[in-house]
Design a protein around this nucleic acid. Structure first.
Length: 502
RNA sequence: GCGGGUAUAGUUUAGUGGUAGAACUCCAGUCUUCCAAACUGGUUGCGACAGUUCGAUUCUGUCUACCCGCACCA
């Protein structure tokens, strides 16, 4: 009877509904039934997103003397992705067990034939583990005894599943069931989108949509060093789209296939205290997140254990955020050593060394990389801002955006729209403010309704022109969070906005 | 990718083998001197494609999207 949606995340549902209702975020290609993993940003969403990117750029590039900006192309030479390891390493062959429905990474699933006096009596399989050799030997011994085979057990030589011969797929037992025959061949999940460049569609034309903006920075590192604008330590920052063919996009815009990154590579001497530098950047990033409206108590740190680090990393700490669906990675701060530049030096044959005047030495610098997903940040900001409260017994939904990132900074209303003198006065103010800020104009309905509308899209202030305005030039300034109203003149209004919207 | 669930207007929802009603929202108008007022009118919907049928939003199948769990997330 009841077909109540069984969503266990009403907060997430409310945020998604508001995003659609008010024009923040739409599902991509909605009129054709949607397209999994892609999103469109509506009139409000594009403003919010732009404000976040501009705030980042201002604080990261303009307000720092040691960081330069860059905008590299999305499609670059495929050689870049070979050098970076993405062509080889970005694809993880996966194995599914058809019986248990378990899924394994093929390079973490090990197997070996059990050989007695030269005869293969079966196979054993184990998952990657420090004790896997011992477990495999024990299992092989049991198999030998169970089958009653006499003879000498040959040493167990474990290989991972990617090295298995196709004829062996049917013989290797699933680690889940212990029975052979249920494992699929290793299947590729290459997370890079491929495309073709040029008229010819042969394999030499294959190119990739970048899965991260970082490689564009490394590929231009030499250009920027050669323009002589920088000396160690320095950073290069970039904002741009990136693409990953995620197997399972989930959680609204948290994991999507097309997304935007704000990345910065901070180049330091190999002799420098990289751990100290890492810590400084973690703190800088946390402070910045607070400055755009994320409460400090919703942030956390997740230090990646050494054994789980990526191939390029010497240390990674994620700044996490308490999303409605759990505490998840927001901003990854990775120490990439000199892996990337060394790779590019080897593959391109061009020197990536820099001469440091201070130490009179030449070296390939190491990097600390703070990488932030714009869309994840946007979702975090939406989550932190979403508030329900009660005003005079009426429920109210409001988005408590930091004024700095709010899509509209201020709204201007004539108290009554059928009074031309109020309309005219309000238009004057609206036009004046519009030159400097994104301002919302609304004449429809009762004044209270207009206030609530602004609450729902997070406009921090509303200014109402009434009959007193015509007499003494003061307006009603109404505050979104407190709903307090006070009289203020134009000069005071401009000064207040200037002070609040740095 | 696997399993389970869901799909009617912008939102929340009625309902039917004979092409759908409501509330709120939205738009227009009347009115309105500061927190979703009132009145009048209006726009908008059966996720898509097939099949069964005289006729399908309803029954069947396929697909798509969303939600939950598992797996995955260099």
């Amino acid at each position: 009877m009841s077909k109540a949606k069984t969503s266990k995340n009403p907060l997430m549902d409310s945020i998604i509904a508001l995003c659609k209702r008010r024009g923040f975020i739409f599902q991509s290609s909605e009129i054709y039934g949607g397209y999994n993993g892609f999103f469109d940003f509506g009139p409000l969403g594009v403003e919010l997103k732009k404000n976040l990117k501009e705030a980042w750029w201002k604080d990261m590039v303009h307000c720092r003397d040691d960081i330069e900006g860059l905008d590299s192309s999305i499609i670059m030479s495929p050689k870049i992705w070979v050098a970076s390891g993405h062509v080889g390493g970005f694809s993880d062959p996966m194995v599914d067990c058809k019986t248990s429905k378990m899924r394994y990474r093929a390079d973490q699933l090990f197997f070996a034939p059990v050989i007695v006096d030269g005869n293969t009596i079966g196979y054993v399989s184990v998952l990657e583990d420090s004790s896997m050799q011992a477990v495999a030997e024990e299992t092989a011994d049991k198999m030998k005894r169970k089958q009653g085979v006499q003879g000498t057990l040959a040493p167990i030589e474990l290989k991972d599943y990617t090295e298995a011969d196709p004829s062996e797929y049917e013989l290797i037992p699933s680690p889940a069931t212990g029975e052979p025959g249920s494992l699929t061949p290793p299947r590729d999940f290459n997370l890079m989108f491929e495309t073709k460049v040029g008229a010819l569609s042969d394999s030499t034309a294959t190119a990739y949509l970048r899965p991260e903006t970082a490689q564009g920075i490394f590929a231009n590192y030499k250009n920027i060093v050669d323009t002589g604008r920088v000396k160690i330590p320095f950073g290069i920052a970039q904002v741009g789209k990136a693409f990953r063919n995620e197997i399972t996009p989930r959680n609204f815009i948290f994991r999507s296939r097309e997304f935007e990154q704000m990345e910065m590579e901070y180049f330091i001497s190999p002799e420098a205290d990289w751990q100290g530098c890492h810590r400084e950047w973690i703190d800088w990033c946390k402070d910045w997140l607070v400055s755009v409206g994320l409460p400090a108590d919703m942030l956390g740190e997740d230090v990646h254990p050494l054994e789980k680090l990526s191939h390029y990393s010497r240390g990674t700490t994620d700044i996490t955020f308490k999303f409605p669906f759990g505490e998840q990675e927001l901003w990854g701060i990775a120490c990439r050593g000199n892996f990337d530049l060394t790779q590019h030096q080897e593959h391109s044959g061009k020197s990536m060394e820099i001469f440091d005047q201070e130490s009179k030495s030449k070296f390939i610098p190491h990097v600390v990389e703070p990488a932030l997903g714009v869309d994840r940040l946007l979702l975090a900001v939406l989550t932190a801002a979403y508030t329900e409260d009660e005003i005079g017994g009426e429920k109210r939904t409001l988005m408590k955006f930091h004024p700095r990132v709010a899509p509209y900074k201020v709204a201007v209303f004539p108290l009554l729209k059928n009074k031309p003198e109020l309309m005219e006065k309000a238009q004057d103010l609206y036009k004046k403010l519009q030159r400097k800020y994104n301002v919302f104009w609304d004449t429809a309905g009762a004044i209270g309704r207009r206030y609530r509308r602004m609450d729902e899209i997070g406009t921090p202030w509303c200014v109402t022109v009434d009959f007193d305005t015509l007499e003494d030039g003061t307006f009603t300034l109404r505050d979104r969070d407190t709903t307090e109203q006070k009289r203020i003149n134009e000069e005071e209004l401009l000064a207040m906005l200037d002070a609040q919207l740095y």
